[in-house]
Design a protein around this nucleic acid. Structure first.
Lengths: 339, 339
DNA sequence: ATGAAAGCGCTAACAC
DNA sequence: GTGTTAGCGCTTTCAT
């Protein structure tokens, strides 16, 4: 309670040290488990810590050491998402285990929003940041370079990353699915996606699929990209649009499983059979697939592993340990019975 | 780059002030828009800020002022959840608009995990915290009291909150649904839930429903609470268990919509008709409902409003403005055709 | 409207 | 193993 400022936060290290009859440094060392301390000193300090209800002040600690905090900024498109939620859960848990705190941000696929977030976060002198936007503004890149701060780009694979990249190969996912759908004999294939803001990685999967079509001298017979977030209804509605427009469509590649499930239900509502009448392929591996009567043909992705690897790579870089610059997180095409 | 320590972070306020030919204080005031400054001074300072790529140091700022940061800690059960993801999105966006940064944590319904998170977060001298655990450890409560820090308890309504409570009335949700299901003539009603760690608010809804049954001299004919997270498959599997155990069951109240949808698909897989053979009622208002052929009978909840109100209340309390201690977020029973 | 001095709580560096 | 000294970059207070 020393000082006349309006601070909060109870006792200080000095008070603990005083009560324990040692210097601040000794108390500090005990609390951080650095170097050796006598068993007795240690006990005396910890007793006072408990008695006084001492809560370390990490702001002062970060300030007093080297202006680098144990905060890590993580920016994802949005939080309400099984996929990103899972990645974030994994990142947060891993970082937490290493003693870091996660500060979040969302950008909704807007590079400008990402930059604005970054500027605010850098003021906290984070130990590192994890980004998931695949496109960065010039400003974002410059700031990151200038601060020479550890950065992990996550979600999409970036072959020339700012620093470290841990992601899925979306192009290959699309290409592989394209070949698979073609191998099942489908002839008139459409794409259905949804992008509220700028294009996300669905665009890249679409291109991969398109490349597979191109290899067979084909192309999407139509592409329907709604101005919406990818969700069940967008898939439902997009499918309706596509089938009304071009009735010969016999397969649809969706931006993700949410939309694919929406499309599946549209087909069911019209008495169309999946695979037989309209092939349906998604991406992401949603949990709902486990209870649907149809097994959705999709590409499952390892969001947990992605998040864990991203966090571990960041921590390694922060600590100056050797790190793999580029890691491809596993994806697997799971043939169901909807294609 | 002054000093021999290994700091990072480019130029300092002093350097900016120097270059602009003013004192640190003037530069500081310009950057914070406090009190008046000459148009000219302002321009000169801002020019140097841009030229030097100055990034304010909020750690030093928080330290130098009153040891209270603009950080806000938010702890939810988990991030991979449409419901909590939505609340968190809303909280984060609102806090961000007010100039606060969100630090996240997850507790998976463990009060001890919540306390551990809280201890780590308080070291950052947050301006406030938002909790979603409905049960707190004695330690959590003591620490919060000792620090006299603004706290919002969110998700469940707490009639005697630590500080502020913004939540849904889960008991009433259950009670209302109980009355509704009974009004439809169902006689043998079961409950299906899932709790991986400790009990969440599903337990309270279950009790509300039970109270409604009790009012009619009834009780659940069986209760199936799986040791799992509430998800589609748990709903599917739980339904299978219940119906195999007691075949006369003619309605099931589920912990949430995810499980209800799982149950719905189990019934479909067995040729049972929703409502006709087995009534199905959920909670939460999932998006998938918009594409299902059946309209799920459920209670929709206003997660966006909940998050926004929680964040706004916290900010008001931080600023010393008057705040409503208890806010009930809206919920609405939506009769579908599955009961 | 602007400046000077003091100090926030902690840790790095070095001495003992 | 422990203590001493200095200082991190900013804001507060008080003066001009």
């Amino acid at each position: 309670m020393a000082g006349s400022r309006g601070k909060r936060g109870g006792s200080t290290l000095a008070e603990v040290a005083n009560a324990a009859g040692v210097s601040k440094m000794t108390a500090s060392r005990v609390l951080r488990n650095t170097s050796g301390s006598t068993e007795e000193t240690r006990d005396r300090v910890m007793r006072e810590v408990r008695r006084l209800g001492y809560v370390p002040n990490r702001i002062a600690a970060a300030f007093g050491s080297d202006q680098i905090s144990t905060l890590v900024g993580v920016c994802v498109p949005r939080l309400k998402s099984d996929l990103f939620g899972s990645v974030l859960d994994s990142i947060n848990q891993t970082l937490s285990n290493f003693g870091y705190q996660t500060m979040i941000g969302t950008h909704e696929q807007s590079p400008e929003a990402e930059e604005a977030w970054l500027r605010a976060i850098l003021a906290w002198r984070p130990a590192g940041v994890i980004l998931s936007g695949h496109t960065h503004t010039r400003g974002t890149i410059e700031i990151l370079r200038a601060q020479s701060i550890p950065v992990v780009e996550v979600w999409n694979l970036n072959t020339s990353p700012l620093d470290i990249s841990v992601g899925f190969n979306h192009f290959d996912c699309g290409h592989e699915m394209g070949r698979f759908v073609l191998s099942k004999g489908h002839q008139n294939i459409a794409y259905v996606g949804a992008e509220a803001g700028a294009a996300g990685m669905g665009k890249v999967r679409q291109e991969g699929f398109k490349a597979a079509l191109s290899d067979s001298g084909k192309d999407f017979v139509t592409e329907e990209v709604l101005v919406d977030r990818p969700n069940f209804y967008a898939g439902f509605y997009g499918t309706e649009n596509v089938l009304n427009r071009i009735s010969k469509v016999d397969a649809i590649y969706y931006q993700d499983d949410t939309m694919a499930v929406g499309g599946l239900f549209y087909c069911k509502s019209k008495g169309l059979k999946a695979a037989g009448d309209v092939g349906i392929a998604g991406w992401g591996g949603m949990e709902i697939a486990s209870v649907l009567p149809e097994r959705l043909t999709t590409t499952t992705v390892t969001t947990q592993a992605l998040g864990k690897t991203a966090a571990e790579s960041l921590v390694a870089r922060i600590r100056g340990e050797p790190v793999q610059d580029i890691t491809v997180a596993a994806t697997r095409l799971v043939p169901g019975n909807t294609v």
